[in-house]
């Protein structure tokens, strides 16, 4: 098997990070349900890819839980 490596270029890294930041912002601010759902899926997809390249590690979904900020998550389901 070849030991080929395909590294992201600096430009690609910068573009991907910009995309991620933009999507993360939209995921918390967009009100239209259909758009918000699509953006949140896009955030997850991009995050998995960036994490695989050791570029980003962000645990963020708990921030979307406006109602649970004052209490534990245990009983929220």
């Amino acid at each position: 098997m070849t030991n080929a490596r395909v590294e992201l270029t600096e430009l690609q890294v910068r573009q991907l990070r910009d995309c991620y930041r933009t999507l993360r912002g939209l995921a918390e601010s967009v009100g239209a349900p259909g758009v918000r759902a699509a953006v949140r899926i896009a955030v997850a997809d991009l995050h998995a890819a960036l994490e695989g390249q050791a570029l980003e590690f962000d645990l963020y979904t708990h921030r979307w839980d406006e109602e649970s900020s004052a209490h534990d998550h245990t009983l929220a389901s």
Partner: peptide, 17 residues
């Protein structure tokens, strides 16, 4: 068992699952 179905372990609200 303390709080079915997911108990006391979740770090994020299961409602966001």
């Amino acid at each position: 068992g303390v709080a079915p179905p997911y108990g006391t372990m979740p770090s994020t609200n299961p409602g966001l699952g």
